[in-house]
Design a protein around this nucleic acid. Sequence first.
RNA 1: UGUCCGAUGGUGUAAUGGUAACACAGCGCCCUUUGGAGGCGUUAUUCAUGGUUCGAAUCCAUGUCGGACAGCCA
Length: 599
Amino acid sequence: MSLENTPAAPAPSDFIRDIVAAHVAENKYPRIHTRFPPEPNGYLHIGHAKSICLNFGIAREFGGICNLRMDDTNPTKEDIEYVESIQADVNWLISGWADDKLGLKPKGKTPEAIAGNGHRDFYLPATVPAPSPEPTVQSLEPFYASDYFDQIYDYAEQLVEQGKAYVCDLTPDETDEYRRNGKASPFRDRSVEENLALFQRMKEGEFPEGTRVLRAKIDVAAANIWMRDPLIYRIKHAEHHHTGAKWRIYPMYDFAHCLSDYIEGITHSICTLEFEVHRPLYDWILENLNLPRPLPHQYEFARLSLGYTIMSKRKLMQLVDEKLVTGWDDPRMPTICGIRRRGVTAVALRAFAYNIGITKYNGITDVSVLEYAIRDDLNKRSLRRLAVLRPIKVVITNYPEGKTEELDATNNPEDESAGKRKIPFSRELYIEQDDFKEVPPPKFFRLKPGGEVRLKYAYIIKCDEVIKDAAGNLVELRCTADLDSKSGGATAARKVKGTIHWVSVAHAVDAEVRLYDRLFTEAEPEKDGRDFKTTLNPHSLEVITAKCEPSLGGASAEHRYQFERLAYFALDLDSKPGQLVFNRTITLKDTWAKEAQKG
RNA sequence: UGUCCGAUGGUGUAAUGGUAACACAGCGCCCUUUGGAGGCGUUAUUCAUGGUUCGAAUCCAUGUCGGACAGCCA
């Protein structure tokens, strides 16, 4: 699929890119270096996709690198399962677009000590994967904040040595109270020696959790609460998924993050708005360590909110844990793996990320913007196929029994190179229930008693008779075909208002089709504090068996399909040989449904 | 309450002191062997008040409204 490697759109412009462009113009850094730093405590979702596209997009556009880093400073919430899913999702999303901008490091490598400025200092440069024409085993891995625990501990000691950090014995509740009231901790003025010894004993695991912390000594009365002697280390007797049992103390986000950025040589540390109030602390830590290399700076943008979607990792996990969806990769989930399984391509997701822009305004993006990006991409790439989701039988009474014709069909009207295929036609067909109305509403262009309709790629037929069972249920339609109306025939150019899809009964292939719809019934599932579970859409999944044209028997997960006049579909990973399972990625735009609703 | 941030059509964004524009959505028409796609057209916007200026979405002041943060989470 050549589209896979097509850049989504001209590079966008936004306030962060403007800043980066200015830095490039003034030669402020030898190279632009961003990073994508998820915490491995859940699966990546479409909000992360926005961030990935921003960070890797900047790396692409300004000749830089974007490191993938596990922000893993809280072992009790994190897991290797998430580390692996994050890598897979990032790789998928940037594949063919920014793989050569992905900053990794040799497996097991940790920062190297460098001398400078009379201080201890550390650096861990990035390696980008070599473009590999043949499959070479590249022993690279993502960065891990936890790989810097030794260095971060060292930096903490440097702060203590300077009298800029102290061990505090207040309980968590007391700490809260003191900070709220701008009151100094009674342990604030311990000697450097005592602090050093205590901090070391914390490291050795001598104290129970919650009994002591290391705090930066900044300003207990600062207007910004994050500057009121913030905690930078806490005791946790927990095993870490990456460092094992080595540590009893773990650095807090604020301390670890800026230093991780510095160690990796990050220039632009881009995060979401809620970290705005932390920025003074980010700067304070780096500035008070007398670091010799250029310091990274933090920039904030608005996280994505999408209509009919929830984005909180905690709540998504709740959907998984309570089996309200089948898993993190349920096609209804806004996770990257869920969206991928649904059949959305990385190209579409990137186009969406580009289209919504980057600002500091917290708005709610309409889902139609996402849906447009998906349709726009799928329209260009998908193979057209005929399939009937809810069949009714049609008998062409003037067509010979036992005869089969192979008709020409276009694979993709948007792409000549996709070629053509043959579809078998015979006397007995399935058509869509929705394409026949015994009592048609106004402007109904499809089949009705006594009316004519074009069978796509085949004949014009006329409905002569409606056969019902004793209970009055529709059993079959008996029609006659204009046998000259096939492509190239004498009456082929006859105008009939409607064209419908069909499948030959004798040649039909069955497939399980999973019809997905929005997970929530409300654009704002949690508006006014209501429980998001009360707005779950009970019809978000319907499973049916469809009748498909025979070529679909050879469907592949690499391709996307449009079942003509219905929707786009992708093969689900539950498919087995001879047992097709399709996911409905998204319906086609349906202006008739809209028209019918008006009437 | 404090700190920080924000406010441009229905929605999301652009215009960086000089004609308020783009996309999505909506509406209408054309085209169509997909009621898809495409083409054409169209509706609709600068939170308020004051100031600076020849000129303000943009700069300043005040106000209003909204958001984030106030975990030993990130």
